[in-house]
Design a protein around this nucleic acid. Sequence first.
RNA 1: GCCGCGUUGGUCAAUCGGCUAAGACGCCUCCCUUUCACGGAGGAAUGACGGGUUCGAUUCCCGUACGUGGUACCA
Length: 509
Amino acid sequence: MKVRVRFAPSPTGGLHLGGVRTVLYNYLFARAHGGEFILRIEDTDQSRYVEGAEQYIMDCLRWCGLEPDESAEKGGPYAPYRQSERKQLYREYAEKLLESGHAYVAFDTTEDIEKMRKDQRIDEHTPAQYDHRTRGLMLNSLTLPTERVNELIASGTPYVVRIKMPENHTVKLTDMIRGEISFDSSLVDDKVLLKADGMPTYHLAVVVDDYLMKITHAFRGEEWLPSAPVHVLLWEYLGWKSHMPQWAHLPLILKPDGNGKLSKRDGDRLGFPVFAMNWTDPKTGETTKGFKEMGFLPQAFVNMLAMLGWNSGTEQEIFSLEELVKAFSIERVHKGGAKFDFEKAKWFNHQYIQHTDDAKLAELAKPYIEEELKSQPADSRLTTYDLRLVVSLIKDRCTLLPDFWSQGHFFFATPEIKEEAAIKDKWNDQKQQFFTNWLTEIQNLLDWTAIPIETNFTELLAKYGLKKGDVMLPLRVMLVGGKYGPGVFTIAEVIGKEETIKRIKRVLG
RNA sequence: GCCGCGUUGGUCAAUCGGCUAAGACGCCUCCCUUUCACGGAGGAAUGACGGGUUCGAUUCCCGUACGUGGUACCA
């Protein structure tokens, strides 16, 4: 049987890194088994519909290089891939369940249910659920005579279809990561399957669609584990038990400090992205930063995510997507949740920057440099340089793409002197004279490359009885503006004689 | 509260009964570098707790604690 897996997000906002990891594991599993990876949009909650979210999800997958084989956009043999467009389909199965007695119709209003929860409260903290203990107290096809039920339906009274969870039944399932798990059916509530607006809930839709789309393996977040018995029972009641996919419930990604699931707010609070790409809420206009825009390479992002909850059992940490396809196995996914570590994420990106060739890097860094150049004087230069050269000089100082500006700005624009003390402290006439004289010396220097420049510099130094250590840092600050960067004479070579002289003169006055 | 799942250094983690418990990130020290990085060499730092099973438990079992998820006409 052909392996078919799916990622089934609800298009309600930014794509969380946990979601991308779920996509990744699905993708790797499908590729490794010569199977298909499907993107199914779970938009059954009309009240949570968010404009643009679906397109955004696909953009994120494209950026990550994890594109589905079948989707609403691409189409495929099991279309439509948007649950809202499959609405009519689900009712048939709900009715099947009604007929077999595994589901019932309920007319209770939200207020009725709230009242029941309050009255039947189990203890002071926990309201009762709609289950085998309380359904007999409610307005449904179990308590009402059939004629009355038909009458209510005929008169247009809103109703939902609920699953009738059996009592004292142990529901078992085998999870590829966790092994055998069992639940007591008496403790699970009678979940709504079909809402009053005719849309299915996740519980019905996921089972029906996984069956119809011939999904063989279902990977999802651990937060779904508690409702898994409902899904298992549904597979059974619909008569599809032998087609049920193999489950794998993925561990959660936790916030770095404190406890709990990593949320968008944690990113804002701690200064790192949580979404794959920038997400702008169409209602508030508020933009949340993404890994892409913060300067991550998609390959680094994906590699980092792969290692968050999985490892190959070897010491290898850097994997290309192809290598991941070969090495990945769902059984080696960790059971426990992992706290997200942004420092480690940055390390991955640094590794990828070092291993990316200069031409490609130059291309990636260019937009960031161009953006910064907009606020620089017009004579600033980008086009006069081979960006590849600059990039090769500073890449090992760069962790994120914007670092190419902060580490290399002095190649493009005359820098502001930020470490004036490094020049002014211990400054004296001797140094003043030395630099003044050197300026005339280099006017005549024919070979403007790092080594001759340095030789010339060192030789003149001796005549003034100065030590190299006395003037190297001042020279650097004159050219760079701060105490960092590649070799000073290399910088002088790259920015050119004229610019070098200009920057030194500026300080000598 | 109840139910599920989990628990090896600060973080990610290896180990599938023999441990002097890998490796990586981060941190610290030193070397390299007349800057900052990169690189190199070192270092500190780990089995939640209590019972079993066993010649031997990090590893298997049971409790407890802690964490986390769920407990919606949200997914």
